[in-house]
C-alpha cells in the first residue's frame, strides 16, 4: 500500500459575484463545490472536464494560489488550508505548478537561465551562483534542452521548448507533487507527445506525483492512474483509469467518452450527443447540476443533489441512478 501524499476532503472554492449599485456581494459562483479525493505517492490523478467545470480552480485551491472557501487539503498529513505564510513557503518547495500557456508564464525580459535559477535562489538551494548555474544546466539537460538555452530569452524558443523550460523551473526545487494545468493543450500534436513522454520520464526518475488537468480525455487516459471527471464544480465520477474506461457509470462520463473523435475512420461509435450547453456556473440548475442535459434524468434529479456512491472499491459516482435510496429500478 502506497502512502497517501495528498488528501482532499470536501474542498469548496466560491467566488463572490458583486453587483448592484453598492457593489454588494449578491451571490457566489461555486467554482469548486465539494471535491474529495486521495492521491498516493508516485501516482497521477487526471482531472478532466469541459471549460468552466472548475478543474483549474481545484488545482490552484490545493496550492492555495486561490484561497479555498471550505474543506481540507492534507499534504503528508499536514493541513494546508490553515498554514501560515512561513509554512506555506516551505510547502511551495514540495508542490509546484506547470501552466498551460508557456508564452505567458515565462518572463520575456529574463534569460532562461535566470528564470530557472530564481526558483533555486528563492528556496535557498545551492551555495552560490556558480553552483546554481551548474544545477540549472543539469535541469536543462534533464528536460531535453541544449545548454545554450541558458543565455537565451523565452521568445527564441518554440512552444514545446518553452513548456520544457516551464517544467525545468517546476522540478528545479525537487518537489514531490506537480500540478500540471493543461500543459499540452497549446501544443501541436507531434510536440504534445514529446512533452507527455517527458512527464512520464521525470515521474520515473524523480518519483513525482502528478495532478494532471486537461480537457482532452485521450491525453488524460494516457498519463493517469486515476481519473476524476468534473462537471460544474463537482466531481461526478472518480475511479482508477481501468475501471473508468471499463465501466463508465455517470451519464456525463459516458457522453464525454463517446464525444471524443477517434483517429480511425473504420471505427464508427455510437454517439451520445448531449443537448444544450454547459450551464452558467453562477446560476447552476437545481439538484444534480447535470440533469437538464442528462438522458437518464429522473424526477428526483431536479430536486436533490446526488451523494457520492461507491459502486466498487475506489470507483465513486455521484448519480441517483446508483443510489439505492432513490433508484428502485436497478
Amino acid at each position: 500500500m502506497k502512502n497517501a501524499l495528498l488528501e482532499v476532503a470536501d474542498l469548496k472554492t466560491y467566488f463572490p459575484v458583486k453587483g448592484g449599485l453598492l457593489k454588494n456581494t449578491k451571490e457566489y459562483l461555486k467554482a469548486v463545490d465539494g471535491i474529495s479525493f486521495t492521491l498516493e505517492e508516485g501516482d497521477t490523478l487526471g482531472l478532466v472536464g469541459e471549460s468552466g467545470c472548475g478543474k483549474s480552480t481545484t488545482g490552484r485551491s490545493i496550492l492555495r494560489l486561490i484561497e479555498p472557501t471550505e474543506g481540507s487539503v492534507k499534504y503528508r498529513g499536514a493541513e494546508v488550508t490553515s498554514m501560515g505564510k512561513k509554512e506555506l513557503r516551505k510547502l511551495r518547495k514540495e508542490m509546484q505548478i506547470v501552466f498551460q500557456d508557456p508564452y505567458a508564464s515565462l518572463n520575456p525580459r529574463k534569460q532562461v537561465g535566470s528564470i530557472i535559477e530564481e526558483a533555486l535562489s528563492t528556496h535557498g538551494i545551492g551555495r552560490d551562483s556558480n553552483e546554481r548555474k551548474g544545477m540549472v544546466l543539469d535541469l536543462l539537460e534533464k528536460v531535453g534542452l541544449n545548454a545554450t538555452a541558458y543565455e537565451r530569452y523565452p521568445h527564441e524558443f518554440s512552444g514545446g521548448q518553452r513548456q520544457r523550460i516551464g517544467i525545468a523551473r517546476a522540478i528545479a526545487v525537487n518537489p514531490s507533487l506537480i500540478i500540471a494545468d493543461e500543459p499540452v493543450s497549446a501544443l501541436d500534436v507531434s510536440i504534445q507527445a514529446q512533452i507527455l513522454n517527458l512527464f512520464q520520464d521525470l515521474q520515473d526518475s524523480m518519483g513525482l506525483t502528478y495532478i494532471f488537468i486537461a480537457h482532452d480525455l485521450s491525453v488524460v487516459k494516457h498519463i493517469s492512474d486515476k481519473i476524476g471527471v468534473m462537471y460544474l464544480g463537482r466531481m461526478v465520477e472518480l475511479a482508477s483509469k481501468d475501471d473508468l474506461f471499463a465501466r463508465p457509470s455517470h451519464p456525463y462520463t459516458q457522453a464525454l467518452m463517446s464525444a471524443v473523435p477517434v483517429p480511425d475512420p473504420t471505427i464508427k461509435k455510437e454517439r451520445i450527443i448531449l443537448t444544450g450547453d454547459v450551464p452558467n456556473p453562477s446560476n447552476p440548475p437545481t439538484g444534480c447540476t447535470f440533469h437538464p442535459r442528462c438522458r437518464s434524468c429522473m424526477e428526483i434529479c431536479a430536486e436533490i443533489a446526488p451523494k457520492p456512491v461507491e459502486i466498487s472499491p475506489g470507483h465513486v459516482v455521484s448519480c441517483h441512478l446508483y443510489d439505492p435510496e432513490y433508484n428502485c429500478a436497478t
Binding site: S158, G160, Q194, L196, N197, K221
Partner: peptide, 24 residues
C-alpha cells in the same frame, strides 16, 4: 505516420507515445 503514432488514442492503450523528434 509520425502524426498518427504520436496521438494518444482512447481505443487502444500505449504505455509510451512515439513522438516526432525535434520541432517544426
Amino acid at each position: 505516420a509520425g502524426l498518427i503514432n504520436s496521438i494518444p488514442n482512447l481505443e487502444e492503450m500505449k504505455s509510451r507515445l512515439d513522438p516526432i523528434t525535434g520541432n517544426v
